[in-house]
Each structure stands twice: as C-alpha cells, then as structure tokens.
Simulated assay, not measured.
Amino acid sequence: RRYYEREGDLDVPYEHTESAYPLGRWLSDQRRAYRAGTMNGERANELEKLGIVWDTADAAFEENLAAARAYYAEAGTLAAPRHATALDRPVGQWLTNLRRPGGLGKDTGRARRRAEQLAAIDPDWNPRLLGWTVDWQRCYTGLHALLDAGNTLEDVQPGVTYRGDDIGRWTARQTRDWAQLNTEQRRRLEELGVRPRAAVRAQKAPARGAAKTEAGKSSEAFQRGVQALRQYIAREGKTTVGRQHVEELPDGTSVRLGVFLSNHKSRRDKLSNDQRAALTSLGLDWA
C-alpha cells in the first residue's frame, strides 16, 4: 500500500524491495496464486483496488526484465549471447526471442511498452533495428570497455578478449571490412579511433614520432593502472580484484582495474622488465 500511495500504481519491478521487503517478488507470487485459483476473493479484491495487473505474461516479462537489468549491470550491454544467464534465468535466449518479429507480443500497446522498458536499460537492445548484428554490438561494447580501462588501440591486438569475445580480432576485421559497414557503425568506430586499414597504413607511414606518441599513451595507461592498483590494495588490503571493478583516482580518472589486470596477466610475456617489476612489487606473483 505504501508503494501504491507513493507511485500511484502496482507496476512494481520484480527485483524491487520496499523497506527491505521483496515487494516485486511477493506480487509475482500473488499473480501465480491468482492464476492457480488458490487466492481468496477478499485478497484479490484488495489488490485489484490498488490496481494490480493479473496478466501472468506481464509478470513473467517483469521477472525476465529484472534478469536483463542484472546482465546489463555486469556486461554493459543487452547484446547477450544465447547461452547467457542472469538471476538463474536464460536471459540470452529470452532476448533473442524478443528480437524476432512479433517477439514482444501481438498486442501493440503491450509490445510498445515492453520495447520502451528494454530501451530504458539499453537503447541498443535490438541492434538489428540499427542495421547490424547482436555479435557486432557486443564486441563494440567490449572494445569500448577495453579503451575505457586505459588500453590503447595498439594494445587491443588479436587474442585480447573481453567476456569471452576476441576483441582484437574483431577490431582488425572492422578495419579490413570497412566498406561493408554502414554509416552509423563507421561513426561509432571512428569515435573510438578505429579507421579503415588504408587510413591506418597512411597514418603509420610518417611513423617514428607517431609510434613514440602511441607508446607514451600506453605507458601512461599502465601507470594509471598501477596507481589504481596501489590505491585499491591500500584500501582493501588484497590484490584480488573483480573483473568489473572500477577504481576512481584522486584526479577523477576512472580506471577499469579488473580489466586492466586481466589483460596484462594474459599478455604478461609482452610486459617490459620495468612493468613486471612494478606489478611484482605490489604482490602480483604472476608478473
């Protein structure tokens, strides 16, 4: 009742809690009881006065939507592979089904509402409407995350992965097949500094000065990562960092520390002696 008085309806997200009480889950249970015919009339009337929607299809959608929110919080995208799960739900297959023609339901009002709910989580939840595949969207998100973590494009070579996708190989393929990309794909990649292969070669021609500049950027990114790790260890007293952890430096810089460590561990054979020494001094045995 408190939720209804505040919000004016009982459109409660499945994962919502009210003063630590799992209200969304409780309402889902009430809908199941109503469908099974085990709810008494008095309780049903009370809930109907507050505007409960008994439609079990909507209830199931809300539960899956909660899983989609959880997946997005972890992955930064709803371009989930089919096998992806979240909150013990097959969110990848669920999203795949929704993207199919008519997947949002035959009722146009309901379909529009569901699309809006998904877009509120991730505006690009259905990449096919934009002219590219779910896999492309997921890898683009992965490249964005790697660059946000302080890596440069030079760092993202074939073999560099993000959540199981080889982002280095994918990026190389984009530069090679640039002519096959649509205008919006090119624009997004250009914002990340990705260029067609011919343009990259032309940029590398003058070379030495540019190479030094790129090396300098890579060195700066490494130093920021070390600074973030040192700060994390001082605060937490451990070197174990979750892959999605972001560390805020005093100057306001955000460092994706978990990604930084994962990438450097996978490429430790390419680290310089100074870089190895810096990481070893902080207690990273693998360096």
Rank of each mutant, 00 (worst) to 15 (best):
R1L: 09
E5F: 01
E7H: 15
D11N: 13
H16C: 05
A20M: 08
P22E: 03
S28P: 02
A36T: 10
A36E: 13
K49I: 01
I52Y: 07
V53F: 02
A73K: 15
T77W: 01
T77M: 00
L78C: 10
P81D: 10
R82W: 09
H83R: 14
A86C: 09
G92I: 10
Q93C: 03
W94N: 08
P101L: 04
K106G: 15
R113C: 00
R113A: 11
Q117R: 14
L118V: 04
A120V: 12
D124P: 04
P127F: 02
L129M: 13
L130S: 13
V134I: 06
T141P: 01
G142M: 02
H144Y: 04
A145H: 09
D155M: 03
I167K: 04
R169Y: 00
R173A: 10
W178S: 05
L189C: 05
R201D: 15
K204E: 14
G209C: 08
A211C: 03
S219P: 01
A221T: 04
A221W: 05
R224N: 13
Q227C: 10
A228W: 02
I233K: 14
E247P: 05
T253D: 14
L257K: 03
L257P: 07
V259R: 13
N273L: 14
L282Q: 09
G283S: 10
A287H: 05
